[in-house]
Design a protein around this nucleic acid. Structure first.
Lengths: 348, 348
DNA sequence: GTGAAAGCGCTAACAA
DNA sequence: TTGTTAGCGCTTTCAC
């Protein structure tokens, strides 16, 4: 009663209390070998009495089957974009006998750092990271991995790290999207921007900016609306922006950091009595499954989400299973503009 | 060249090649203590040459800060329902200094089993599981946890396991939903059912069935359409069902296993020229964020998703940190019918 | 700065 | 069926 646990309860404690040897305790716990029922009872009872929990065993021998594992650190749990990336990575992992463990940084550097350290320390075989953009861009946790010769792959570029990377050319896609809008006769374009912790967000802004200036369109910081990454963000930003926007200077088209933003914007526009695409054209990014199921199917820049995850997993497994240190590998994928019904051709 | 690696490369090998002691190698890897630059170089070089990867250390001492961890096994990565559960669990975990690791079974028993074993074997401190319904209902992996006195919490009931559980009364909610439809004058109700591996799916079917029979409504197996859990499933099933359904016997209302199904159904109906709610009323389940952003905001049964995750995490942490074995705890939450625009009042 | 040696909690091999 | 013993790969004193 009220006994204070000073030290971790160990297998020896259990053995002592049950009056058996450690080996017997081990046998009971792992359900191997034959142990007399009465003995098992005693052991189990001792375990409960002491609240004993076996310490993880670092089985230095061949990994027991089904213990191979990969980690994946994403940035937003509730973003279908990452869901598809996870699914792609998971498929490849399973194919190769690996289990996939996912952690999310939710855009916070500290969380990412802790997740990286945790997964490595726990003996997960390798890591895929979608790194958050950080003010001071502290890469120490990644350098730490390098030092330890720990296999990892980055999804999304991060400057200053020599590692294997899978990424997409974002600027290119932005250009295509904006050029398409311009070709349809749009001249007043606004961009709803994503979170600052995302490199993709930055690249998409830059892409839109360049494409506009290349076409001699005016695109200032006023044409960038900081929105976010979720449905509610698109709704809020859309409502605020279009409410305070005089009808005559209203943008004819909006490009959104992602499809979720676009879907939220749809609703805001509907509430304001504005129709898509008649009054406002909308372009999204990612091509999440929802995009084609919206009331007005969404024109969007398709990211090869599952492919990115799959490729990263493939690369990672190669590194994990290599008998020697492999040189970093860089794969860059293309994105593609998917034309649907959310953009209207303007009469000139 | 071509040296075959017979055994795992160990720290001793590195020490030998670098001509230092194991302690020095350890110091270099962990970046602690002062090591002469030239020595560090030699060690790092040896690590690379041998492709050495430090084995996970089972630090029997106090866990280094930021190593506390919880595992959560979900059933579908790309289902916003689980995203919310994860978010709820994650928030509580972080608050208490735990990192959350997520694995998905994708509805497959084998995956669940492997994930459970992996997370336990790797020394994750505790587990939350949304168990898949399995034909033979093999619970051995859960009993294994019991035997090991390993802390875990179930989300969704599973028969025959004495464990801490967080769940929702599904049948009740089904009844409320159907009674609401009936009160609105609906008499021809069809249910789009979810995947067989989900207990919730079964319960929702049963709930609808009971509610109908309680109101002397005809509800046979013909009124159950096996759909699935995703947008595409709702679309496919919707298209198939309503296409082959003579107009005069067309259901006036559809209840869907989840909101995703409902959203997919929306699109199918639109393509068939049927309007929601004018021609067909729709009720969903879960109340995912999307529900209120649909073109016709969806009436749905709200599941306390984040709360379930949060509560499970809270319970789990209590078990993990308890100094003695705690008795299983059972929490049952209520769900709530959220009235939106997708159900029409029928004139009689 | 570095090395030798002790010890961690556990499993495995073998003897009883 | 059970106990004894010998490791496992790593970190950690503590001399040098």
């Amino acid at each position: 009663m009220g006994t204070i646990q000073r030290k971790r309860v160990t297998m020896s404690d259990v053995a002592r209390l049950a009056d058996v040897s450690k080996a017997t305790v081990s046998a009971v716990i792992n359900g191997i070998g034959m142990v007399k029922d009465s003995t098992r009872e005693r052991v189990l009872d001792a375990i409960e009495r002491l609240n004993y929990r076996a310490a993880p065993v670092h089985t230095w021998q061949v990994q027991p089957t089904g213990r191979k594992s990969l980690g994946l650190i994403i940035k937003e749990v509730d973003n279908p974009y990452y869901a598809e990336v996870v699914l792609g990575a998971r498929a490849v992992a399973e194919e190769n006998g690996y289990s996939l463990l996912v952690a999310s940084s939710e855009g916070k550097y500290e969380s990412e750092r802790r997740a990286v350290e945790l997964l490595r320390a726990k003996g997960i075989d390798g890591l895929i990271v979608t790194p958050v953009l950080h003010a001071q861009s502290d890469l120490s946790h990644l350098f730490d991995l390098q030092r330890r010769n720990y296999p990892y792959v980055l999804i999304e570029q991060v400057l200053g790290v020599r590692a294997s990377i899978v990424d997409v050319v974002n600027e290119d896609a932005s250009r295509k999207a904006v050029e398409y809008l311009i070709a349809q006769g749009h001249t007043r374009i606004v961009h709803f921007a994503g979170p600052t912790y995302s490199m993709h967000s930055q690249e998409r802004i830059a892409g839109v900016r360049h494409a506009c200036s290349a076409s001699h369109l005016i695109f200032t910081d006023d044409h960038i609306v900081r929105a976010g990454a979720h449905l509610a963000d698109g709704y809020r930003a859309g409502l605020a922006y279009f409410r305070s926007c005089p009808a005559e200077s209203r943008p004819t088209a909006v490009t959104c950091y992602n499809d979720l933003l676009a879907a939220g914007l749809y609703r805001a526009l509907a509430e304001l009595g504005l129709r898509v695409p008649d009054d406002v054209s909308v372009i999204g990014w990612d091509d999440i499954p929802l995009a084609e199921y919206l009331s007005v199917p969404l024109t969007t820049v398709r990211m090869p989400k599952a492919r990115m995850g799959a490729l990263a997993a493939q690369m990672l497994i190669k590194h994990v299973e290599a008998h020697s240190v492999l040189p970093p590998q860089l794969v860059t994928l293309e994105s593609e503009l998917v034309l649907r019904a959310s953009v209207r051709r303007l009469t000139l």
